[in-house]
Simulated scan of single mutants.
Amino acid sequence: VTEAFFLQAQRSRLAGGLGTRLSFGKMESGLRKILTVLVGVLWLMLFATNLNLYNLLFRVIEHTLTAPHRLGSTTFTLGGVLLFGGIILLTVQAQKYVGYVFGVSDEEFDADDSRKGSWLVAVRLALLAAGLLLATVASGLPVDKIALVLGALGVGIGLGLQNIINNLVSGVILIFERPFQVGDYIEVKGQTGRVKDIGIRASKLTSQAGSEIILPNGDLLANHVINWTLSNNHIRTELPLNLGPDLDLDEARRLISEEILANPHTLHKIAPEILLSGVTTSGYDLKALFWINNIRQEQALKSELLASIYQRLTAAGIVMR
């Protein structure tokens, strides 16, 4: 059974153009626990049948679960309460692992991965809403009483859980307004990183250093968010260069500009700017401003360009310090 789930998840990844292998350990562990419980229940039923105790145990359990109980003016059964809680529990677990069905794993990180959108969060919210509705209907609990309890809880929520509800509502707004998507590179409250997950209560960013930043959805909605990749992945970057004295400054600028434009990861339609930022007795301080086509490759590209510029200038007899 676990292999069947794994094959379905891997097939969904391949159909979506994701060639990397899916990490299936977390879901496999959860499936094994569920299957172990089911097998245990079936074994107990078979064991009771062999001892001719199945019918007796069945009648006792049936009576216990269906016997009516009263709490004030409300009548309920233990079976209804257990059914309500069981469906809610299964719904919560299902929304955690629903991404695996579509080949999406929350644990994976690929810096070159394209934006996935926020549809997965909408699916999770729909599952939670459908699970709550199904649990209410299937359990037979009085809907009017549940509505009364929820109304009473609303007062407590309004007083003590304002931040949590604010984050939940903000998560719903982020899903439909979509100021950013999974895979976007954003900056908010001084924190910069790639959006790894848009959750119901909080969202996760992965910084360039690899750390995970968890931000409440309320903060994302209330603060200024800079989305570097909303319409494209382009960004203008700066590369400082320190050159020695006794050189032809115009020739050095030309060589640097040619070397930048020769790199396939820079934008050629916008000419780089080579600016003089300082002059000292030891040489010239230059600042190269140019556009690159992928913000996620900024640091690697700057390192690559610095090495190639050094080689080009050294070959031309220009000293870098």
Rank of each mutant, 00 (worst) to 15 (best):
Q10A: 09
R13I: 03
L14C: 08
A15C: 11
T20G: 11
T20W: 13
R21I: 12
S23L: 10
M27S: 15
M27L: 11
R32F: 13
K33H: 06
I34L: 11
V37E: 09
V37Y: 14
L38M: 12
L42T: 09
W43F: 15
W43Y: 13
L44D: 13
T49Q: 14
T49R: 15
L53S: 10
L56R: 11
L57A: 12
R59K: 10
R59A: 10
T64N: 09
L65C: 05
P68M: 09
H69A: 13
R70N: 08
L71N: 10
T75Q: 05
T75Y: 06
T77D: 01
G79C: 04
L82H: 02
L83R: 09
G85A: 09
G85F: 01
I87W: 04
I88E: 01
Q95M: 12
Q95F: 11
Y97R: 06
V98F: 10
Y100Q: 00
Y100H: 02
V101A: 11
V101W: 15
D106I: 11
E107K: 15
E107M: 03
E108M: 04
F109C: 02
D110F: 05
S114R: 15
S114E: 14
R115N: 13
R115L: 03
S118E: 05
W119C: 11
W119E: 12
W119M: 14
V123E: 05
L125K: 05
A126P: 05
L128N: 09
A129K: 01
L133E: 08
L133R: 07
A135P: 13
A138F: 05
S139L: 00
P142A: 13
P142Q: 10
V143Q: 05
I146C: 01
A147N: 08
A147Y: 15
A147G: 07
L148T: 13
L148G: 06
L153C: 00
G154E: 00
I157S: 03
G160H: 04
G160C: 03
L161N: 02
Q162V: 13
I164L: 10
I165S: 09
L174Q: 09
F176C: 14
R178E: 12
P179F: 00
F180C: 01
G183I: 05
D184R: 11
E187T: 08
T192K: 14
I198Q: 08
S203W: 07
K204E: 10
L205T: 01
S207C: 04
S207K: 02
S211K: 02
I214P: 10
N217E: 03
G218R: 07
I226H: 10
T229K: 00
T237K: 11
P245G: 06
D246L: 13
D246E: 05
L247S: 01
D248K: 01
L249Y: 08
D250M: 11
R253T: 08
L255G: 13
I260L: 14
I260M: 04
A262E: 05
P272A: 05
P272E: 12
E273M: 07
I274M: 02
T280G: 15
T281K: 13
G283F: 05
A288K: 07
L289Q: 03
W291F: 12
I292S: 06
N293A: 07
N293T: 03
I295S: 06
E298W: 02
L301M: 01
E304M: 07
L306P: 11
I309T: 01
T314G: 04
T314K: 13
G317W: 09
G317S: 04
I318R: 03
M320D: 06
